[in-house]
C-alpha cells in the first residue's frame, strides 16, 4: 500500500512532482467585495472577501494596521462520510489561524489602519490538500477584491513516502494516517515562506527534500494563479486574447 507504484505513477496517474488540474472562477458573487471559486483536482472551495471595513468590535481595532479575520468551513456533505458540524472544531480553527498569519504577511496591512479584512472559505468537496487550496482561493479572492499584496500567495502540500520520495499536491487517498505531509505557502512562488505546517513524523534527512519539492510545487501553482488573475483583469478591462478561445470565457484549465 504505497503512494507510488513500481512504475513511478501515483494512484490517479500523476508523477510525484505533478500538481492536479486547477479550475477557477473569479467574481462569483456580486455581494462580496471579492470572491473566487477554485477546483484543485476534486477539492472545491468557495471564498468571499469582505472589506477593508470598520470592525464592529472596537477592542480588536489596531491603530497602525488592519486585522485579518479568516474563517474555514467544511460543508457537511463535502466528505464521503457526513460531517456533523461545518466549523468550530479544532482543525477548522487551526486552519483559520494559519491562513490569517499567511495573509497578514502578504497583505500591505499598514495601508488600512483601524480596518478589518474578512476572508471566508467554504469547502464544498473534499479531496485532500484543503489548507493549500484554501490559501490559493483566498489569494484569488483578495486579488478580486483589489486588496494590495506583496505578491500572490501560492500554497502546495507535499507528502513523503517511506523511502524519501516527495509527492506534491496530495489527494485524500494519499493523506493516509501516518504519511508525513507538509503544507507550504510562498509569496510569488519564490523563497519567502509564509506558512509551513507539518503533520506526522518525518526524518530530518527528508525535510529539505520535501521542502524543496513543495516550494517547486508552489511555483507551479503560482504560475496558474497569476495567469488566472491576468485573464480576469484582461476580461474586466475589455481586452481579449485571440490566441486561446478558452481565455475569452474567463475559464482556464491548467495542468502541470
Amino acid at each position: 500500500m504505497s503512494i507510488i507504484s513500481e512504475h513511478g505513477y501515483r494512484q490517479d496517474g500523476r508523477k510525484p512532482h505533478q500538481i492536479r488540474n486547477l479550475n477557477y472562477k473569479l467574481g462569483v458573487y456580486s455581494q462580496a467585495d471579492g470572491s473566487a471559486y477554485l477546483e484543485q483536482g476534486n477539492t472545491k472551495i468557495l471564498c468571499a472577501v469582505y472589506g477593508p471595513y470598520e470592525p464592529k468590535q472596537r477592542s480588536r481595532l489596531l491603530e497602525d494596521r488592519c486585522i485579518i479575520n479568516c474563517q474555514y468551513s467544511m460543508a457537511t456533505f463535502s466528505t464521503n462520510e457526513r460531517k456533523e458540524r461545518p466549523r468550530g472544531d479544532r482543525r477548522s480553527l487551526e486552519f483559520a489561524r494559519l491562513m490569517e498569519k499567511a495573509f497578514e504577511a502578504a497583505i500591505l496591512t499598514e495601508n488600512y489602519p483601524r480596518s478589518q479584512i474578512d476572508v471566508f472559505c467554504e469547502l464544498l468537496q473534499a479531496d485532500g490538500s484543503h489548507l493549500a487550496a484554501c490559501v490559493n482561493v483566498g489569494t484569488l479572492a483578495l486579488a478580486d477584491a483589489g486588496v494590495p499584496m506583496r505578491g500572490l500567495i501560492a500554497a502546495a502540500s507535499c507528502a513523503c513516502t517511506p523511502d524519501g520520495l516527495a509527492c506534491v499536491d496530495v489527494n485524500s487517498r494519499e493523506e493516509m494516517g501516518i504519511i508525513p505531509r507538509l503544507t507550504v505557502a510562498t509569496i510569488s512562488g519564490q523563497d519567502a515562506i509564509v506558512l509551513a505546517e507539518l503533520q506526522n513524523r518525518l526524518h530530518k534527512n527528508h525535510l529539505i527534500l520535501i521542502l524543496e519539492a513543495a516550494r517547486k510545487a508552489t511555483a507551479h501553482v503560482h504560475s496558474c494563479l497569476e495567469a488566472a488573475v491576468l485573464t480576469h483583469i484582461k476580461a474586466a478591462i475589455g481586452l481579449s486574447s485571440t490566441t486561446d478561445n478558452d481565455m475569452e470565457r474567463d475559464n482556464i484549465r491548467f495542468s502541470d
Binding site: 468557495l46 468571499a48 479575520n69 468551513s73 474578512d118 471566508f120
Partner: peptide, 16 residues
Amino acid sequence: FFVDCSANATPLFVGR
C-alpha cells in the same frame, strides 16, 4: 434538515 448559513453570504454569519 440542517441549514448552514455560510459566512460567504455576509460577515454577520461568522461563527454562530
